[in-house]
Design a protein around this nucleic acid. Structure first.
Lengths: 147, 147
DNA sequence: TTGCTCCTCACGTCACGTGAGGTGGC
DNA sequence: TTGCTCCTCACGTCACGTGAGGTGGC
């Protein structure tokens, strides 16, 4: 029993994602967001819940990993393909095809995990160095306050 | 016994920091890098070890924390003031002034530490969610491979 | 029907990249 | 003196911001 997808306009998507409408339109322009292919010029854009989640995920990767939009496109492209395939999941009775889809999803999430962990390590090193500096400062302060 | 500061030109600084000469000149242009105030137009720029370390630190904050150059300037401004004051450290016999310098350095490093830790937390949450997703995918794969 | 939101240009900005043509210093 | 590096414009690009003027749909 599938529910009809809740449709929203760009303003609501902007409010829910914290992005501007300009940014959302720009992402469609460069192909990062699919964008209703069959929209007549001048008519309003329409989005659903999946679009919001996609935007939230993409912008999180953008901010936390510092990726360019082109890199993001590549990273998420496979994911898109997966989503498209997943829509065919129900229709797909072939076990081999289902395995292919799942395998692809795994490669994808693993790539993202690797990037996140690498970043975390770099941040860890930076934190260590800052903490070391802090110690030095504290020591100097103690010496000054001392006898 | 202080050593005469090792002077280098912009190309060497670029090589050692991984930045382009254009970026280094741009940072000077916007005031992020002090830049030899008294350089005759057309003459070569000159840098020392401290400049290299400053650039390395600043670009690390830029990349890992995603700060704008203006935010970076503010964050590092206090640091610059500190460095300037530190040069006067030797000449400063006043205990109160030395304490002020050390106190300022502490505030500064603490601000940077807070930003780093906040980032680390956000990355941690993202990693958790991705790991969760990975589990789901693995479960699906098992089900497909099963009987 | 009236507002509010959305639409499409189109120019501005930030943080540089990329030459073009010319001078400096080991 | 000859190369190589550096110099200063100055225009291009990426990822949007910011209006201007006009239409769409509850």
């Amino acid at each position: 029993v599938s529910v009809v997808a809740e449709r929203m306009r760009i303003g609501e998507v902007a409010a829910r994602t914290g992005l501007t409408t300009r940014t959302i339109r720009y992402y469609e322009e460069i192909g990062l967001l699919p964008g209703g292919d069959a929209r007549e010029k001048g008519r309003h854009r329409s989005y659903d819940e999946a679009d919001v989640e996609r935007l939230l995920h993409v912008t999180r990767l953008r901010d936390l990993l510092g990726l360019s939009l082109e890199e993001l496109s590549e990273l998420v492209e496979a994911e898109e393909a997966r989503a498209a395939l997943r829509r065919r999941w129900e229709e797909t009775e072939s076990r081999e095809e289902r395995l292919r889809i799942v395998e692809q999803a795994l490669v994808n999430v693993d790539r993202q995990l690797e990037l996140v962990r690498h970043r975390t390590q770099e941040l860890g090193r930076l934190e260590q160095e800052l903490a070391e500096r802090r110690k030095l400062i504290l020591r100097r302060r103690r010496e000054l306050a001392g006898p």
